[in-house]
Design a protein around this nucleic acid. Structure first.
Lengths: 107, 107
DNA sequence: CAGTATCCCCCTTGATACTG
DNA sequence: CAGTATCAAGGGGGATACTG
């Protein structure tokens, strides 16, 4: 999301700044299940551009939420997966999905 | 946040579209505690503009997450509070705060 | 396969002024 | 007090082309 300048330092805002951008939660929902390769992720996220996927992955990686493993082979093979730290987001994702479902059921 | 067009329909994305913009979570954190008046909220959210606060409140209201009660008096008095539906976000907010804290503790 | 490199748009956010 | 009305800026997101 989206946290820029003047947001006060607070735990909630920290979390949003880490995972609040447009595609990150969807990326994480995949990576929490198992490791994925780059193009595999591309195909699974309909509508995402390469640039945005790359940017999102880089940010999540530098924030320590996912890892990137480059097999250094040819043809290239890179694997993305969740870190122990990122695994702590599982409950959060579940709760967000739960609220989304509940919300829709209430219209 | 920030969910615009091509995000697939999924519960997680629904939740983000409802509460993912810059200030909404901070507004909700206040309103979940008790009802607040407009200027009271303004003062509590350092850096927010009137326009953004108004817009955020209107959206949250039309999404059924908060209510707006106009006392129709002079001087004006308006009260904002959480709805039953919005109250379901409590756990989510707590979890987000918890992850934010945990994240900072792990650096 | 797994990316860079550009260019550009639009939407959110913001600053300021004014009002019932 | 509780807003509305404008105008402006910035950057996240997107489209397209190219590469080791």
């Amino acid at each position: 999301m989206k946290t820029k300048k003047k947001l006060p330092e607070c735990p909630v805002a920290t979390t949003v700044s880490l995972i609040g951008s447009k595609w990150k939660l969807l990326i994480l929902r995949n990576l929490i299940k198992r490791p994925w390769r780059f193009n595999e992720l591309m195909r699974s996220l309909d509508g995402i551009s390469q640039k945005v996927l790359t940017t999102s992955l880089r940010e999540l990686q530098s924030d320590g939420i996912i890892y990137r493993k480059d097999y250094q082979c040819n043809p290239p093979k890179v694997e993305y997966g969740i870190t122990d730290l990122g695994l702590h987001l599982q409950v959060l994702l579940d709760q967000m999905a739960a609220f989304g479902d509940y919300y829709k059921s209430q219209i």
